[in-house]
Amino acid sequence: MSTPGHPDVLRLRPDAVLALAGELTSLAAELHEDADSSRGAAGSLARALDGDDGATAASAATAWAELGQLLAERADALARTVAGAVRASLDHDAGIAGSVGGHPRGPR
């Protein structure tokens, strides 16, 4: 077990890191679904109870949905950032390889 922040170490295993990004994307999708379920529950609460109490309960359930949405969006954003970092790193490396070898290569 090493550490991601050692100043002298730069390491990237693209497949492994892309797999982590994929897991983050899945997690985000699952939480988006749960946020939708919470929104549906909010509507049901409002209809089931009617009146102020129904509105109060529905507001709480809507807040559940919003909280889930926040977490899902953050997980999604991190997934995209991580996957983008891998692609950028590979492109950068390909560019350097092209320069060193004298055969300029386009981005991957």
Binding site: M1, S2, P4, R11, R13, A16, V17, L20, V82, A85
Partner: peptide, 15 residues
Amino acid sequence: VDDGDSWAGPAALEA
């Protein structure tokens, strides 16, 4: 990510 086995460096630290 924290283990650093697959990814290490400043970006990994931020992630």
